[in-house]
């Protein structure tokens, strides 16, 4: 089941927005306006879906969900462009799906900018235009030059899956013992608290390490991903990480009396884990208060580490602060859990 998720989720959670449908209102119907439209249509991200003659009609198709962007090219677009050397067009985006709307208008703006440069270059040869000094920003994507989302998502999803195995299986296992009554039997024996806890955590720690290995194998076989950095770094971090999520599982088990309760806790924690992990939304662009919360969210650290090791090939010493943070969280959660676990009810 987790393996299937690991295979399917990265394919589904691709941020690239393709097939943006644009409705064009061409009131100018000039050579330049046609050229702009052609340029838009030629891009792999944008399809010109339809032509409308009024903004109201165009809005209708946006409302019906058949169009994502509306481009209005006003009358005299060409005339103004040539005579006054500048002209305006109007672009409206359907922002119901914020990502699609935002990216769509950004792509369209990029294409319009391209178009702008093109005609300037053409006119440059004509003497009546002076040469504008222009600053242009070009970006190069380091480490992940193709902006390959799978490279970005697979390590992240692997972390979330290991988290589930580590924390929730531990919690459910201990709570199940509460339900069956074996925990009472254990509590009445002279077994030490730490012996019991180590006995409970160690198997799940091993299981977690094994599932990371399986996950990395799947990442290689299906997606062809190999960490740029060392496996040792990954395993050391995973070991410390599992220690801290097992602590969370243990803590949940001390609060929950039934498996239903533990499952509800688990859902709650999982939401927080995923939303604040930086898996989908960059932590850097979160508001300050939630940035603070990500500091106590172990998956946020391991996702950073996995991505860094997989994509950049970061070494252990590069990630040392993260290591200490995970170790600290592990100690925190486990100490809380041990304090809260009582062999004798009060």
């Amino acid at each position: 089941m987790p393996i299937v998720q690991l295979i399917i989720l990265p394919l589904a959670s691709d941020f690239e927005v393709k097939n943006i449908r644009i409705t064009v209102i061409d009131q100018d119907k000039s050579t330049y306006s046609k050229r702009l439209i052609q340029k838009l249509d030629a891009s792999e991200y944008i399809n010109v879906a339809e032509y409308k003659d009024s903004y109201t009609k165009a809005l209708e198709s946006t409302g019906a969900g058949t169009s994502d962007l509306i481009l209005t090219i006003p009358v005299n677009f060409e005339k103004k462009l040539i005579k006054e050397n500048e002209s305006t067009i109007h672009l409206a985006a359907d922002a119901v799906n914020g990502i699609k709307g935002g990216l769509g208008s950004a792509y369209a703006a990029m294409i319009v900018g391209d178009f702008n440069r093109e005609i300037r270059e053409e006119w440059m040869v004509m003497p009546r235009h002076s040469e504008f000094p222009a600053v242009e920003i070009t970006s190069a994507n380091w480490y992940n030059p193709g902006n390959n989302y799978k490279l970005f998502m697979v390590p992240g999803i692997l972390v979330i899956l290991v988290t589930m195995i580590g924390s929730f299986m531990t919690a459910l296992n201990i709570v199940a013992e509460k339900e069956v009554g074996t925990i009472e039997q254990i509590n009445v024996t002279p077994v030490k608290k730490y012996e019991f806890i180590i006995g409970k955590l160690l198997p799940f720690w091993v299981l977690g390490m094994v599932s990371i290995t399986i996950g990395m194998t799947v990442a290689f076989l299906i997606f062809g991903l190999i960490p740029q950095g060392s496996f040792l770094t990954i395993y050391v971090f995973s070991g410390v990480y599992l220690f801290s999520v097992l602590g969370i599982g243990l803590l949940i088990s001390t609060f929950a009396d039934s498996q239903q309760q533990a499952t509800l806790f688990a859902y709650f924690f999982m939401m927080v884990f995923v939303m604040l992990s930086g898996l989908f939304t960059p932590i850097e662009s979160m508001p300050d208060w939630s940035k603070m919360l990500t500091k106590i969210n172990p998956p946020a650290y391991l996702i950073t580490v996995f991505r860094a090791v997989y994509i950049k090939g970061s070494s252990f010493s590069d990630l040392l602060p993260t290591f200490y943070a995970l170790l600290g969280l592990g100690l925190l959660f486990n100490i809380l859990a041990i304090l809260n676990y009582r062999k004798r009810a009060t």
Partner: peptide
């Protein structure tokens, strides 16, 4: 109470072996 536990056996109404 932990010393007591070394010297007692306990069997509860809830069946308590690992099934």
């Amino acid at each position: 109470n932990e010393s007591i536990k070394k010297h007692i056996g306990y069997m509860s109404q809830k069946f308590s072996l690992y099934e």
